[in-house]
Structures are given as C-alpha cells and as structure tokens.
Design a binder for these strands. Structure first.
Lengths: 362, 362
DNA sequence: CTCGCACCTGACACCGGTACCACATTGCTC
DNA sequence: GAGCAATGTGGTACCGGTGTCAGGTGCGAG
C-alpha cells in the first residue's frame, strides 16, 4: 500500500528507508549499473512501500532528454488535425514519448510563441503544421533547428525550408477530382476556398501568385484545379473562384454570388469541410439540388458525407497516417538515421459516391 | 543576432559574457530581486547576443512548478474532445500554462498509465474525462490526488469521487429531446447507443443497472430517455434500445433490427454522432425518409447536420466552454480558492430543425 | 598467511535554474 | 569621523535525478 504523502518521495528517502546508499537505490530504480539481488530486493520493497515514482523532470535535467515531442497545429478542434495529432500521439507513445500539443489558431505569432515554449521545455523533437509561407517567414523554425531540436513538417510543406515534410499530394488529388468533374461534362467549375483577399484577382497569373503567397495546401489545391482545366483546354474564369475570409459564411456568400451570374457553375470543387457545408447551404437557398442541378466534390471525407442525400463524392485524407509518418520521420532524425530531408507524400483516397452527374442541359 | 550554438546557452554563460556574477544574471533574467540599471543592461545585452532562453525544466526543478496541465481524454480525434481540449488549451495558455494531452482510446489501463506519466512529469494539475465508472475503479485518480496533484473531471462525473466535475446536463437534455418527440405524437422511440453488452436485458431495472455500470454519460442519457417515457406514461420496451458495440456499423445493424419488427419505432433518439450516421444509414437502406417516415434527434451538433435533407434537429454540446470551465475550475483548486468540490453543469442547446414530424398514420 | 583482483557499494559532482544570505560599498546622521 | 542603515552584488545550498569513480570487502592463488 502506497503511503499518502502529499509530497512524492525522492530516491534519497527510498534509500534511507531501505538502509542503502543513494546511489544504490538510484541504480536499482534507474535500472543501470550493478546491484546485488539482496539489496535490489530491499530497495524495490521500500520503493513500493513509499509509492516511489521517479521525477521525470529531474531525470530530464541530468540526461538532457525529455522523452517529449512537441506538436504545433492550427486548431486542435479541427477533426483533420485531431486525426493527425492522434497519429503522432499513438506513434510516439509506442516509443515511450509523450506529446505537448499547442494550437495556434492559424496565427504566425502564436506559432512563434509555441516554438519558443517547446524550446524552453526542451522537447526532443517537434512536428509542426506551419503557417509559414516561405523561408523568410520561417525564422522561428530555423531558430529551433539552431538550438539542435529535430523538426518535421506535417500537412504543409514550407518552400525553401530544408526539412522532412509529410504531406498529401494535394495538387494531384485536386487535379483528379476536377478532371472527374470535367469527364462528367462540366466546363464551369467553381473553386470554393480561395485566397483570403478582398479583391478578386482578374488575371490567372495574379491568382497563382497570390495563392503561392498564402497557405501551402490551398495553393497546391488551386494549382491542381488549374492543371485539370489546362489539360482539357478550359479557360480559367476568375469569377468562379471564391475569395475572402475562409469561413462557412463567406463560402455561402461566394457560392451564392457565383450561382447568381449569367453563366453560373454547374459543378463545385470544395477544398475543405466548411467549404462543402457552405456550398451546400448556398445551393439549398438557391433551390438547387446536388448532382441533379449542380455537381460537387469536396476535400476531407466524413461519416456525414456518406449519409447525405445524395451521398457526397469526397477526397479522403489519411489523417492518422499523416501523423504516424510524421512521428516516424521525426524519430528517424532524432535517432540520427538522417536520410537527406525530403518530402514524404501520402496518397489520398477518392471516394466516389453520387454527388457528380452530367451537367443539366440548358 | 543570436548565435548558432547547437547547445543552448546557460545562465552562467550569460553571466560570464556580461562580466557579472551568476546570481545577478539570474536575477535579471528571472525577473526577481534587485539589479542596478547598468548591470541589468549588460546582462540583457549578453543574453540577447547569445540567444539565451531559460531552461523551463531546470526552473521547474527548483520551483516545483511546471506551468503545465495534463489532459486525459478518450480520443483526441473525436471532435467533441477536440473542442474540449481546445477550450482547456486556450484557457490555460491565457494563464501561461501549456498542456500535455494524452489519449486513452477509452481504455482504463491506458488511463492509469496516463495518470502516472502526468505524475512523473509533475504537472500542476490534471483535467480528465475518465473511463472510470465508480470510486472503486478510480484508484489512479485518488493516487494522483494523494500525490498532491489537483484534479478536475470533465464531461464525465465519477460517482463517489469527490472532485469538481464540469459536465453537461445529459439527463435533462435527453429528457427534453425525447419529450419533444413524444409531444410530436411518438410513442415508439428507439434509443440508439445503449450499453455495450451482448445480451439484451429484458427488464427495465436490469437495463438501468447495466447502464449505471457503464459510461456515465450513456447512463445519464438513458435515464433521461426513461424519464421522458415515465412522464408520459409510456411503457418501456427493451426491443427499442440498441445493445452491443458502440460503432456506426452496429448502430446500423441495431436500428435495422428495430425497423424490421412488427411494431417498429416511429422516432429515433441518438446519443452520439456516429449513432446518428448509423441510424441514418439504416433508414436509407430500409427506404425510409427522415421526418416523413421516422423522426430523429441526435446528440453533438455539427455543421453537417444543418445541411442534411431535411436539416437535423440536434442537441448541441458546448465543447469549448466545457474545456474552458474545466480549466478555470482546475486553476481555482491550484490557487487554493477551494470552494468545496462540486458539479459544474453547463446547459446544452436544443437546435430545432426539421427532422421531427408527427408519426405516420398506419 | 598475504597479496591481488573482481566485485559491490556509496560519495560526489553535475544538469541549470531559484532564492537565501553574507558581505562590500555607499551615504547619511549625529 | 565613527556608526549604522540602505543598497547592490556574488557565493552557495538546493531541487532530484544520473553517472563516474574511489575504496572497501571477500575470495582464491601462491
């Protein structure tokens, strides 16, 4: 029966209780060095009796290893990141590591603060889904690296930063999804979730430019959309891309706007979950039905998508696997098995259901 | 410009670089005690130059405070817990605390291991959504308490454990939802997500018994269902409650079974998100429409529920607020403002949409 | 019987902070 | 001009582990 000391016993107290030296108790409990079976027994018994548990802080102090990984994501309440964090967490637990999770609300300053917290707490490695757009805005990441902390990027690569990045092939996934829409006969395809700017860029190159200066995944998805258009020789129309705040409400507004034009989209490609629900609301208030009137494909599959009427064709992201692979890549760096840093690309799954149909004749 | 030492500088190095004593540097950087403006300036400059950051581990060692909270939930990938964790995380960040999140996969042994990890890492407090059913299975929680670590329960109270618990009024929310169904004229109401047992209990008291020996929230929700039935004098029918594994697949099976009986339910009350989607699949494959054929109310609102056809009437849980309140309650205990431990009950929001209609005449 | 060696064990320095306290210096009073 | 308080600074013990190392013990060989 463990004692009820409100302050946990130290190794010295165990040693005293067992009537041995501090080092002997430490060797026994720490599992290193040699201890005779007899004393070992005594120490173990005393430790049991006092309810001894090693102070991980003290251990980290002297070994310089914290057995903790830091994880930085934009929003832990977002199911996508929830899956990623769980993957990282499960994989690191298997190696005896715990995870310190920091949520940045997609704010670069918070991300910088988060990196500093992790440096201060001397984590053994960091997985980060960074909001940094390029090497210039990734100074905090370089700083962590200069402190000798292994880092791995997840979900979002940062161009110009030479780190392992575990990502999904956003561009190809988007290209294939949009190609699927084109194959079904669509030529007017709306792109929902664009760059968060107030003014709609008129020229295609301005848009690409803009996208490349915003969130990496968004830029890749836009590129994939453009790729598919190019493949089929469809001319890009700036009116078919959403701009402004990335919220469900704004998606409703933007899709409604597209729908109200003279030449409205006959299909919608939505790059995030809230973009899908926003688009759906806009369709409903316009009295339009999915598939019959407007086809739709979205990113981030969910059990809900399968029970919609009609069931939604979606792109499923391997969230758990993303996390697991990121943790594995990080451990490889920690273990010094450093293959040159590179990109680990995971495939998405195109889940075909029933939200795509040929465009309505007009 | 900070130096690129791969091993971070210590306070002694800063002191040496500034040409002052270690204590003076410590007082300056630690922000305690007195230092003359001149030396302070020198120390600050040296720290800046070397890129000094205090080692939080060492600080925790000597102060005995880690500025870290532990959070234990069943599954961080579940959006419900995602919201709770984010609430805790935001609220503690505001107080300068970080959070160590452990996911237990709803397994009591993993939960015990998680508690031990948190004890070892000397967190200053723990928020736990425990899988423990009663005081007897909550030994690990008592153990943490005996180590002097403040604890607060979230989402799930544990009967017999004298700790603050921040929960939602599951019983009342369920009772009201089911009453809503009854008011609409329903008398055969299926309960989706029951006790995870293989054999269907025939008697009502056996069921209650069983429920009370399973997950707290589930038991409360079942009680609320029963309360509403009692209020209206509707007799309980064991065939209308789901049993077995709590998975979407099993929900599909169980709802299909109910639907295939002679006297099928005309309404369904689903106590979790996956129970809702499971029920929806079962309805679809039976060729039944929501509202027109079978009414439905579910727990855990989601943006998806609003875009379903018809939009689903749901019970929204205040996930973020649950986390924030839990953190606040924990800080109150940490600060020693210990009002006697009690239950903090947050309200749910009944979001009425269009999935409830009078039962079909037969 | 003595010496040497293998075998155990405990002392102690260290990790990087915090915080107490002693002491040196300055300036003021009487 | 001596005495003393206020002020500023550095020495040092401590937190609870890890890990090196010196030295004591017991045994076998010569």
């Amino acid at each position: 029966m463990a004692s009820d000391h409100s302050v946990p016993p130290t190794i010295s107290e165990v040693a005293e209780a067992a009537g041995v030296g501090r080092s002997t108790a430490a060797r026994t409990l720490g599992g290193y060095g040699y201890v005779s079976p007899e004393l070992r027994e005594r120490v173990l018994a005393a430790a049991e009796r006092l309810g001894y548990r090693a102070n991980a802080l003290a251990r980290s102090m002297s070994t310089g290893v914290s057995q903790t990984l830091g994880v930085i994501v934009a929003d832990i309440a977002n199911p996508f990141f929830g899956g990623v964090v769980r993957g990282i967490s499960d994989a690191s637990r298997a190696r005896g590591f715990d995870t310190l999770v920091l949520s940045t609300h997609e704010d670069l300053d918070e991300e910088i603060a988060a990196i500093n917290v992790l440096i201060d707490k001397r984590v053994d490695g960091i997985v980060v889904a960074s909001a940094a757009l390029d090497a210039a805005s990734a100074g905090h990441i370089e700083q962590a690296r200069s402190h000798g902390i292994p880092l791995v990027l997840v979900d979002r690569a940062v161009p110009g930063v030479d780190l392992d990045a575990v990502v999904v092939d956003n561009r190809t996934a988007s290209r294939e999804a949009v190609a699927h829409l084109i194959d079904a006969g669509h030529r007017r395809i709306g792109f929902v979730w664009g760059p968060p700017v107030a003014d709609r860029p008129r020229r295609r190159r301005d848009l690409i430019d803009l996208a490349s200066r915003n969130l990496w995944t968004d830029g890749e998805r836009l590129q994939g959309y453009l790729d598919a258009l190019d493949d089929e020789g469809i001319v890009f129309d700036a009116d078919l891309v959403m701009v402004g705040e990335k919220t469900e409400e704004n998606a409703v507004r933007e899709v409604s706007r597209m729908l109200a034009t003279d030449d409205p989209p006959t299909a919608l490609f939505c790059t995030e979950n809230d973009a899908v629900t926003g688009a759906l609301r806009a369709l409903r208030s316009a009295g339009l039905r999915v598939a019959d009137d407007v086809s739709l494909i979205g990113f981030d599959d969910s059990s809900w998508a399968a029970v919609m009427e009609p069931p939604l064709t979606m792109i499923e992201q391997p969230t758990l696997a993303l996390g697991v692979r990121a943790a594995e890549a990080l451990f490889a760096v920690i273990d010094g098995e450093a293959a040159p840093a590179g990109r680990h690309t995971l495939g998405t799954r195109f889940v075909e259901r029933a939200s795509v149909a040929p465009p309505r004749k007009r």
